[in-house]
Design a protein around this nucleic acid. Structure first.
Lengths: 106, 106
DNA sequence: TATGAATATTCATATATATGAATCTTTCCT
DNA sequence: AGGAAAGATTCATATATATGAATATTCATA
C-alpha cells in the first residue's frame, strides 16, 4: 500500500530529532537569516550550524537565497512551523499532567 | 534559557522517526485497538509491535487500558494526529513540487 | 590575483536505534 | 492447577546519527 509514505514521513521527522536543529528552525520563525546570524544566535560553532543547515536543506525544510557572500536561509513551508508548534503544545500539556500527578503524590 | 524544551521536543520527535510506529499511530486514528489487532493490521511480528508500543507509551503518545487478557492502546492527545497530518501534507506538497520540477526537465 | 570573510564538506569517533530470536508474565478458561 | 492466548522484556547485532577538528569552497574587494 502506502508503506512508502510512512518511510518518507519517518525520514523527514529525523530532521526534528536534534535540539540544535529545532533551535535553528525557531530562529527562522520570523523570517530569513544568514548562517552567521544563526551561528551567533544559537551559540554553536559555525561548522556545526552549517552541518545542520545542510540536513534542513536536503530535506526541503528550508530554502536558501544567496546575496553576495551571504546565504539567507528561511523555512520552506509554514506548515512545518505549525507542526512544530503543535508538538510543543503536546509537550507542554504532558508537563502539566506530570505536575498534577506529582502534586497528588504529596 | 529554554534549551531544555528543544531537547524534550527533539526527544519526542524520535518517536516519529520509525515507519512502523507511524503506521501504528495511523491505525489508532479512529480509536483504540488491541496489540493483536495492531499486529495483524500492520503485518509485523507481535514482539516488534510490542517494542514500538512501549516506545509510544513511554513517550505518552499513547495510553493503555486493560480489559481481561487484552490491552487496548489509543492516541493520548489528538494534537499528535494533527501534527502528523500537517507533516504529511508538507510531504505531499514536496512530492508535487518535485514532480513539477521533473516535468520542466523534459 | 591575493586576501579575508562567509559558508560547506570530510573524516573519525562516540553514541543511539531497529529488529529478530528467545524468553518471561499475565490472564483466562476448564 | 494446567494450558493456551495476549502481551512484554531482554539481548545481541547491524546500522544510523551527532559533533569536533581540519580543510575546502565561494565571493568580494583591494
Amino acid at each position: 500500500m502506502d508503506k512508502r509514505i510512512y518511510e518518507m514521513h519517518a525520514e523527514i521527522c529525523k530532521v526534528f530529532t536534534n535540539p540544535k536543529r529545532l533551535e535553528i528552525i525557531n530562529l527562522l520563525r520570523d523570517g530569513e537569516k544568514t548562517v552567521n546570524e544563526l551561528t551567533e544566535l544559537a551559540g554553536v560553532p559555525q561548522a556545526n550550524v552549517s552541518q545542520h543547515l545542510t540536513v534542513l536543506r536536503q530535506n526541503n525544510v528550508v530554502t536558501t537565497r544567496r546575496e553576495g557572500a551571504n546565504i539567507y536561509y528561511k523555512i520552506a513551508n509554514p506548515k512545518i512551523l505549525q507542526a512544530c508548534d503543535l508538538m510543543r503544545e503536546v509537550l507542554l500539556e504532558q508537563i502539566k499532567e506530570n505536575e498534577k500527578l506529582a502534586k497528588r503524590m504529596l
